[in-house]
Amino acid sequence: MDIRDNPQKQRFEALLADGAVAVAEYRLSPGKIIFTHTEVPPEHEGEGIASALIRFALDSARARELEVVPLCPFVAAYMKKHAEVRDLLAPEWRFKLGFA
């Protein structure tokens, strides 16, 4: 699996061996990355692809010093489960997710 940022389409992409693509869509605003949607092809659900994709996307956000706004429920759930990435949350989202 090859994961990359596709800034032209505003999404992170996981290119799968069978040619399918999983995506984590985002929008950028000053100092923030807003994750709006994550989708894995149905035939690949349960393989850990979405988690790998979001881990890559959050590493990218950290490297770019961007705060994360997890509008996508999967990204929010991932960040709730993984304490090591909670510092990336935009302040208002720390409160919304119960980490204020």
Rank of each mutant, 00 (worst) to 15 (best):
L53G: 01
A20P: 01
R11C: 08
E13M: 07
H37I: 06
R11D: 04
G19K: 11
L53P: 00
K9E: 15
R55W: 08
K32I: 08
E13H: 06
V68I: 05
E13N: 07
L66F: 05
P30T: 09
S29C: 04
S60E: 14
E67R: 14
P7H: 08
I54W: 00
H37L: 12
I49Y: 02
L58V: 08
E43Y: 06
R55T: 15
P42I: 01
E39A: 09
R55F: 10
D18W: 05
V23E: 11
R27L: 14
A57R: 01
V23R: 03
I49W: 00
L15P: 05
K32R: 15
H37A: 11
G48S: 09
P41A: 05
L53K: 01
F12R: 02
G31C: 10
A14T: 08
T38I: 06
K32H: 15
I54G: 00
A14P: 06
E45Y: 08
K32D: 09
T36D: 12
H44A: 09
F35L: 02
K32T: 13
S51A: 15
A52F: 00
L66N: 02
E45I: 13
Y26V: 00
A24I: 11
A20I: 03
S51T: 15
S29W: 11
A57F: 03
A52Y: 02
L66S: 03
G19S: 13
A61G: 10
E45C: 13
T38E: 03
V68F: 05
K32L: 14
E39I: 07
E47K: 15
F12T: 01
L53Y: 00
A20F: 02
E43G: 10
E65F: 12
T36V: 15
V21M: 07
R27C: 04
T38M: 02
S60T: 13
L28R: 14
A17Q: 15
E13F: 04
A24L: 05
A52H: 11
K9D: 13
P42L: 09
A20V: 03
I54M: 10
R27S: 12
D18Q: 05
S51V: 12
L58A: 02
I34A: 05
G48T: 08
A52N: 10
T36F: 06
P42F: 10
H44N: 10
K9T: 04
A24R: 02
K32W: 11
V68W: 03
A14Y: 01
Q8H: 12
E45P: 00
G19V: 15
E25V: 01
P7S: 09
Y26K: 02
E43F: 08
P41G: 05
F12V: 03
R11F: 09
A24N: 06
I34C: 02
G31F: 11
Y26N: 01
D59H: 14
E65M: 12
Q10W: 03
D59A: 11
A22V: 01
R64H: 13
L15W: 12
R55Y: 09
L53C: 05
E13P: 09
E43P: 05
Y26P: 00
A17K: 14
E13T: 04
